[in-house]
Simulated assay, not measured.
Amino acid sequence: MKLAIRAVLSVILVFAPGLAGAQATDPGDDKTMVFTPGDPEMAAATARALASLDEFLALSEAPPAGAERFKLKVKVRDGNITEHFWVVPFRRTETGFVGILSNQPAEVRNVVLGQNIEFTREDISDWGYKRNGRQVGSFTVCVMLKRMPKEEADSMLENYGFDC
């Protein structure tokens, strides 16, 4: 049996400027898409994010003017199910990272929206931030947008400043 990986895209909390904390999101605004393990486009997007992770982390620690909303996408496993979530905000710890889970789980039951979670570098699958109103990074989101209905994807590209 092939296991599916769920990738989560939170429209309100992750991309809307000025929202702080997980309480600001409406769980109904999360978009969940299923990707099979090894999906070539998603694997390429994750590889691209991980190849530039060190530069992103350095930037997040000393943000330039106009840069905000630094976020990491991390995988959470619950038995045989893996789901990916944005963590906003996050910070480094001695053993990895900690941050607030910013999406409503669709499949996993071992975490909840707004929970502080600890994770390691190996759990990271993407990163992103806003610079002067435009999204930087969020490589996996661009893959997801390609598979969404055109009207919905076009709206997100325009309203949230993606350059996919």
Score class of each variant (00 low, 15 high):
Ala7Tyr: 15
Ala7Val: 11
Leu9Asp: 06
Val11Phe: 08
Val11Arg: 13
Leu13Glu: 09
Leu13Pro: 00
Ala16Pro: 00
Pro17Phe: 02
Leu19Asp: 10
Gly21Trp: 09
Ala22Trp: 04
Ala22Met: 06
Thr25Ile: 06
Thr25Cys: 10
Pro27Trp: 01
Gly28Thr: 01
Asp29Pro: 00
Asp30Val: 09
Met33Asn: 03
Phe35Lys: 03
Phe35Asn: 05
Gly38Asn: 05
Asp39Gly: 04
Pro40Ser: 10
Pro40Gly: 06
Pro40Tyr: 02
Ala43Asn: 11
Ala45Thr: 07
Ala47Glu: 11
Ala49Val: 03
Leu50Cys: 05
Ala51Asn: 13
Leu53Thr: 10
Gly66Ile: 03
Phe70His: 09
Lys75Phe: 14
Asp78Val: 09
Ile81Asp: 09
Glu83Val: 08
Glu83Ala: 09
Glu83Phe: 07
Phe85Thr: 09
Val87Cys: 09
Phe90Tyr: 11
Glu94Phe: 13
Phe97Lys: 02
Gly99Trp: 03
Ser102Tyr: 01
Asn103Val: 04
Pro105Met: 04
Val108Lys: 05
Arg109Thr: 15
Asn110Arg: 02
Asn110Ala: 09
Ile117Pro: 05
Phe119Val: 07
Ser125Met: 02
Trp127Phe: 14
Lys130Met: 14
Gly133Trp: 00
Gly133Ser: 13
Val136His: 01
Phe139Val: 06
Thr140Ala: 05
Val141Glu: 07
Cys142Trp: 06
Val143Phe: 07
Val143Gln: 04
Leu145His: 06
Arg147Ala: 04
Arg147Ser: 03
Met148Arg: 05
Lys150Cys: 00
Lys150Arg: 15
Glu151Tyr: 13
Glu152Phe: 10
Ala153Leu: 03
Asp154Val: 02
Asp154Asn: 12
Ser155His: 14
Ser155Ile: 03
Met156Trp: 14
Met156Asp: 02
Leu157Ser: 00
Gly161Glu: 04
Gly161Cys: 11
Asp163Lys: 08
Cys164Ser: 03
